[in-house]
Design a protein around this nucleic acid. Structure first.
Length: 395
RNA sequence: GGUUGGGUAUCCAAGUGGCUAAAGGGCGCGGACUGUAAAUCCGUUCAUCGUAGAUGUUCGUCGGUUCGAAUCCGACCCCCACCA
C-alpha cells in the first residue's frame, strides 16, 4: 500500500502520533516496521479498553508489518503507576507466566499469531547488574521525570512516589532499544513512557521509534475510562450473554464511540448509523462484537435471547435447571428455601426481599408470598426473579 | 527513630457509652416507565427464623472496664503525612 495511505491508517483514531516523518522515511525505503506493544502481565484479563490498542496493532499486521508483544515478566515486580496512585502488587515468576499465557490467548482473538513476535524482557534484565542499572539511571534527570503529568500531579498533591516508579520509564525505554522497535503503541497514559523509549534509542545511536497512543475507551457508565477498578468494563472472557447485555446497557452516545474505536467505523459510517433507530444500531453493535469473540451462531442466539427476554419479556430458552431432589428432600418446600437452595441468590434474605419487591414469578405468574409452599412439580416449573435470573425445576 | 492523623459494611464517609445493624452518598439489586440492562422517579441493600418481632454476627486484632462499647482503657498490627 502507498506510504501516504499507510500513514493515514496509522493515524486513524489515534490521540498522539509522534515521529510521523521518521516513519515516512522508513516506509519509503521499503522497511517492514517493528511495532512494539508492552504487555502488563499483572492483569491477565483483557477488556475492550485494550481492544482499542490491539486494533491498531492489527492494522499494522494487516499491512505486513511485524507486531512485537513485549511481556514485562521481569518488570512485573516493579509496579507501574500509570494514572493510578497506588502501586501494583508484586508477582511471583509462576504467576507472571500463568498470566502471560492467558493474556496471549485473549490477545490472539484480535491479533494474528503468525505475524506476532513474542518477547520477554527477563531475557536481558536477568543478566543486568547494578552497574548496568546505574548506567540506565544516568540517562534521565529528575526534572525530566517530573514532567510526566502523573508525577507532577502527585507531587502537587503530596502523594508519595516510589523510586522504582522513576525507573519504570527507563526500563520500558531500554526495552525499545533491545527490541529495535520502529513504532511503539500504547494507551494515552503511556505517552510519557513511550517517548522516553524514543529518546533513549536516539541516545544509543539508533533511530527513535515513532509513538502512537490511543485514547482510553470510556466505560459502560459513559463517564469514566473503562477499568476493572471502576467495574465498568467488558472483558474478552465475559460470557456471550454478559457481553451482549453489557453492550445493550450503554448509552446511545457511548454506542457510537464503541463503533468508532472497537469496530473502526469511519465518521461517515457513523453519521449513517445516526439516521437509524438507535435500538437497531445497538443490537447490531452487540451482535458484531459477540460474533467477533464467539462466532456468528452464538451471536445470533444471544440476539434472539435478548429480544425474547428484554423486548418481549418472555422466558429464555436456556437457563439453569435443577432436579427437585437437589433443592429439597421433602415433597413440598417454601419458595424462599427453594430459591436459597438454588444458589442463584446471595442469601435467603435476598430471595425474600425479591419476592417482597414483586420481582418473582412462577411460570410467569407474579407471586408475593416468600413462604408459600411449592410442591414437587409434575411438569417443569420456571422460577423467575427480576429480569435476569431464571431457573427451571425439572419434574 | 520522633510527632501527628487514621483503620467503620461492596466503596466513600458520619458516628465518640444505651434511642446504632450502625446517618448520608456511590455501586449493586428490584419496581414503574422505556427502543434499551440508557435516562428519570420510587423502593431496597449483614445473616437466620413459617411472613412478626426476635436472635446471631459486624465497626483493624486481641484483651479489659461497664448492666450495656463502633464509641472508654491497654497491648499489638497496618496505612498516610510531617520531622530526622
Amino acid at each position: 500500500m502507498e506510504v501516504s495511505k499507510q500513514i493515514e491508517l496509522f493515524a486513524q483514531n489515534s490521540e498522539n502520533f509522534i515521529g510521523k516523518e521518521d516513519l515516512i522515511e522508513k516506509l519509503n525505503k521499503g522497511k517492514t516496521l517493528r511495532v512494539k506493544l508492552g504487555v502488563d502481565p499483572t492483569r491477565p484479563d483483557l477488556t475492550f479498553g485494550h481492544m482499542v490498542v490491539f486494533n491498531k496493532l492489527k492494522q499494522f499486521q494487516d499491512l505486513g508489518h511485524t507486531a512485537v508483544l513485549l511481556i514485562g515478566d521481569y518488570t512485573a515486580c516493579i509496579g507501574d503507576p500509570s494514572g493510578r496512585s497506588a502501586l501494583r502488587p508484586v508477582l511471583t515468576p509462576e504467576e507472571v507466566n500463568e498470566n502471560a499465557k492467558t493474556y496471549l490467548e485473549q490477545a490472539f482473538k484480535i491479533l494474528d499469531p503468525n505475524k506476532t513476535e513474542i518477547r520477554y524482557n527477563g531475557q536481558w534484565y536477568k543478566q543486568m547488574n547494578l552497574g548496568d542499572m546505574l548506567n540506565l539511571a544516568r540517562k534521565m534527570t529528575v526534572a525530566q521525570m517530573l514532567e510526566r503529568d502523573d508525577f507532577a500531579k502527585r507531587i502537587a498533591s503530596k502523594t508519595p512516589i516510589s523510586i522504582v516508579e522513576f525507573l519504570y520509564p527507563l526500563i520500558q525505554g531500554h526495552d525499545s532499544i533491545e527490541l529495535n522497535s520502529d513504532v511503539e503503541l500504547g494507551g494515552n497514559d503511556q505517552l510519557f513512557n513511550n517517548l522516553v523509549g524514543r529518546d533513549m534509542q536516539r541516545q544509543s545511536g539508533i533511530a527513535g521509534q515513532a509513538v502512537i497512543t490511543m485514547p482510553l475507551l470510556v466505560g459502560l457508565d459513559g463517564a469514566k475510562k473503562m477499568s476493572k477498578s471502576y467495574d465498568n468494563y467488558i472483558a474478552f472472557n465475559d460470557s456471550p450473554r454478559d457481553m451482549f447485555g453489557k453492550i445493550m446497557s450503554i448509552s446511545d452516545e457511548t454506542m457510537f464511540i464503541y463503533y468508532r474505536y472497537l469496530l473502526l467505523y469511519s465518521p461517515s459510517d457513523i453519521a449513517a448509523l445516526k439516521s437509524e433507530h438507535p435500538m437497531a444500531c445497538k443490537k447490531r453493535l452487540a451482535h458484531k462484537l459477540v460474533e467477533m469473540f464467539n462466532g456468528k451462531a452464538v451471536a445470533d442466539a444471544e440476539l434472539e435471547n435478548f429480544e425474547k427476554v428484554f423486548s418481549k419479556h418472555e422466558i429464555p430458552n436456556e437457563m439453569p435447571e435443577f432436579e427437585w431432589e437437589k433443592l429439597s428432600q421433602k415433597d413440598s418446600e417454601t419458595l424462599a428455601n427453594i430459591m436459597g437452595a438454588s444458589g442463584l441468590f446471595a442469601s435467603k434474605a435476598e430471595a425474600r426481599r425479591l419476592v417482597e419487591q414483586g420481582a418473582v414469578k412462577i411460570d410467569s405468574q407474579k407471586v408475593s408470598d416468600a413462604l408459600m409452599q411449592i410442591e414437587k412439580p409434575a411438569k417443569p416449573l420456571v422460577i423467575q426473579a427480576g429480569k435476569r435470573i431464571f431457573f427451571r425445576i425439572l419434574a
